[in-house]
Simulated scan of single mutants.
Amino acid sequence: MTTRVIRPDEWSDPPPSVKREVIGVQPEGPATGPPVLFVPGFGQGAWVYAEHWLERTAARGFPAYAMSLRGHGASGSAPKSGLRAYVHDVTQVAAGLPRQAVLIGHGAGALVVAMALARYPVKAAALVAPVFGGPLAAVTACARNPLGVLPAAFGGRLRPRRGQLFSSDLPAEEQRNYLARRGRASARAQWQLCQVRAPEEPVGAPPVLVVGSPDDGLVSRADLDRVARRYQGAPLLFPGMGHDLMLDARWAEPLDAILDWLEKNA
């Protein structure tokens, strides 16, 4: 991995400003850890972390924040935005926090976080069920769910199946409710995800944890291993869970493991 020193497009053609949704929960007592910024994947917003993870993170002494990328959740509309604009959103929100932050990204949001690591010096980062994209990953995703994935490559909505996102332990009604709340990324960002190259090297070599499930219907075990190797580690696995670990029935287990890791490494 390499890091570019000069990025002329960052100052000559910056992404347009948009309203950014950021939800925060503070510890009841003194903060014992750095602020944690959660970044959702494509089609999801800050609400996916507000369901469970924000409160529990704050209860462990970490100021907890969740954001929505532009065009997602309650953030401003940006139908033509691409990955660069999403990375800009993350770095801007992180830089505005009172202390150097930990970044945690899920799905394609993990790729956005990985790209942001080359621009913002984090305390640490966690990549949850990371979708790093690229042509091979796009072909694999289409093979697993052609009707739900192929239209997204041509500007349509990405439609993962319930069985890919959640385990059977989560009640069907909750699964349907979560699916109904999904939005969509821009067509440009979805197309870029199919072609994206590997992220650049993080600034300052922060510790990076990769978390996932071998039963994830979207991210294979091989993909988890591949991403973890990029950061000189092995994935922390939670069998029996779906892709959306923060919403699945056993949501507390991966979060507690991440926070335990942060207490030792951030």
Score class of each variant (00 low, 15 high):
residue 159 R to Q: 09
residue 175 Q to M: 07
residue 141 A to G: 00
residue 182 R to P: 01
residue 206 P to K: 13
residue 154 F to N: 10
residue 207 P to D: 11
residue 171 P to N: 10
residue 184 R to I: 00
residue 182 R to F: 07
residue 159 R to G: 08
residue 144 R to P: 04
residue 188 R to G: 03
residue 150 L to D: 13
residue 157 R to Q: 12
residue 160 P to H: 04
residue 149 V to M: 08
residue 147 L to E: 06
residue 155 G to N: 11
residue 186 S to R: 02
residue 183 G to P: 05
residue 178 Y to M: 05
residue 187 A to F: 04
residue 176 R to S: 08
residue 199 P to V: 03
residue 145 N to R: 05
residue 183 G to F: 01
residue 205 A to E: 15
residue 207 P to A: 07
residue 147 L to T: 12
residue 168 S to D: 09
residue 167 S to G: 14
residue 154 F to L: 12
residue 174 E to H: 03
residue 165 L to G: 02
residue 160 P to F: 04
residue 185 A to Q: 12
residue 189 A to Y: 02
residue 164 Q to H: 07
residue 207 P to E: 08
residue 179 L to A: 13
residue 169 D to Q: 15
residue 173 E to D: 13
residue 182 R to C: 10
residue 160 P to W: 06
residue 203 V to M: 14
residue 155 G to Y: 09
residue 163 G to Y: 12
residue 205 A to L: 11
residue 208 V to M: 08
residue 185 A to G: 12
residue 201 E to R: 11
residue 159 R to T: 11
residue 141 A to P: 01
residue 206 P to V: 05
residue 161 R to K: 15
residue 181 R to A: 14
residue 161 R to P: 07
residue 194 C to E: 09
residue 162 R to H: 06
residue 205 A to M: 06
residue 191 W to F: 07
residue 146 P to K: 13
residue 195 Q to Y: 03
residue 191 W to L: 06
residue 203 V to G: 03
residue 145 N to W: 10
residue 202 P to H: 08
residue 163 G to K: 04
residue 156 G to E: 14
residue 184 R to W: 04
residue 182 R to A: 07
residue 193 L to S: 01
residue 184 R to P: 02
residue 194 C to S: 12
residue 205 A to K: 15
residue 170 L to M: 14
residue 198 A to C: 05
residue 169 D to Y: 08
residue 151 P to C: 14
residue 202 P to E: 09
residue 178 Y to V: 00
residue 184 R to C: 03
residue 179 L to W: 00
residue 164 Q to F: 01
residue 145 N to H: 04
residue 142 C to F: 06
residue 198 A to V: 05
residue 151 P to H: 10
residue 173 E to S: 05
residue 143 A to S: 00
residue 176 R to K: 10
residue 159 R to K: 07
residue 198 A to Q: 05
residue 192 Q to A: 02
residue 166 F to N: 08
residue 182 R to L: 15
residue 178 Y to Q: 11
residue 156 G to F: 04
residue 177 N to K: 15
residue 204 G to R: 10
residue 182 R to W: 10
residue 148 G to N: 13
residue 147 L to A: 15
residue 149 V to L: 07
